[in-house]
């Protein structure tokens, strides 16, 4: 298959978040701001690429019946590595993402790609697939995070977006609900609908 197509399929056509509806939990929880979305996206991309790489290289050595436990073991190892590296070098992000870093283990995107793609394809294709899917995930999270951060906190990447009037304490009167739990569901719902429409138009 054309490697470029393999890379870009995760962006829209097979976007894991907006089309396949996988990995919904971290999508909703960590998209409170663009930078959190970016951080979560990169953490997942790293795990996805590394586990795809390892699994594609050892796919023939693993007996079929213990396939899934072996995959989970590989994934869990990389997740723990990400956990410790973030804790040491980017503690602020580690705190924001919290329990959702260890939960990458049970993220359907990672195990799904390992089982459906990396265990059947070459090492190179699997790495490219990992990057493509990872970037698609990151893109979706940043879009969601961007909308929620601008409307809910009045900032973008932490910089003020002066579209809201100030209240008595001098803080901007933003539409708080967007940064809270209900806002996550609402924005995600409309984004999925929009993507469906976009996809139908392209076809």
């Amino acid at each position: 298959m054309n490697q470029w197509k393999n890379f870009t399929k995760g962006f829209l056509r097979e976007n894991p978040v907006l089309v396949l509806i996988l990995g919904t939990c971290p999508t909703l929880a960590t998209s409170t701001s663009v930078s959190n979305g970016l951080g979560m996206g990169l953490a997942l991309t790293f795990v996805l690429v590394m586990s795809n790489l390892v699994i594609a290289s050892i796919k023939n050595l693993i007996p079929g019946k213990v396939r899934i436990p072996a995959f989970i073991l590989v994934i869990a190892t990389f997740v723990t590595i990400v956990d410790y590296v973030l804790k040491g070098y980017v503690p602020a992000l580690h705190k924001e993402l919290g329990v959702f870093i260890p939960l990458i283990v049970v993220n359907c995107i990672v195990l799904g790609r390992a089982e459906a793609y990396a265990s059947k394809n070459s090492v190179l294709s699997s790495i490219i697939d990992g990057f493509g899917m990872g970037f698609g995930f990151t893109l979706a999270l940043m879009t969601l995070g961007g909308i929620r951060e601008i409307l809910g906190a009045g900032t973008f990447f932490g910089m003020k977006v002066p579209i809201f009037p100030a209240d008595m304490q001098g803080n901007p009167k933003t539409i708080l609900i967007f940064i809270l739990a209900p806002g996550a569901f609402l924005v995600y719902g409309y984004l999925v609908a929009l993507t469906n429409r976009l996809k139908n138009k392209l076809n």
Binding site: P182, G183, F185, L186, G189, V192, A193, N196
Partner: peptide, 17 residues
């Protein structure tokens, strides 16, 4: 366009509210 997942998510949002 809203059938299936989108409407389910929006209802969850209202429930969460």
């Amino acid at each position: 366009g809203m059938r299936g997942i989108p409407i389910a998510l929006i209802i969850t949002g209202i429930l969460s509210l």
